[in-house]
């Protein structure tokens, strides 16, 4: 029984993390253009990370 006290909250917490991640990505607009995202991976030019951040 005692191990359940830890395991169940951990399981639910992991579920909540996934839910929050989904809701965040929804709000962030990551589902706005699914077709475009699939194509952009081929189109976008490779640039060094440093320059991108600058």
């Amino acid at each position: 029984m005692s191990y359940l006290v830890w395991l169940i909250p951990v399981a639910i917490l992991m579920g909540i993390t996934a839910l929050v991640a989904f809701l965040w990505s929804l709000r962030d607009g990551q589902y706005e253009d699914l077709d475009g995202a699939a194509a952009r991976i081929l189109v976008d030019e490779d640039r060094p990370i440093r320059e991108q951040n600058a």
Partner: peptide, 21 residues
């Protein structure tokens, strides 16, 4: 649409966890 998607996500999360239990 956003409301529906969020509602579905929440219901899905709850359904999976409750089903597990």
């Amino acid at each position: 649409f956003g409301r529906l998607l969020r509602a579905t996500a929440v219901a899905g999360f709850a359904a999976m966890n409750i089903m597990l239990l």
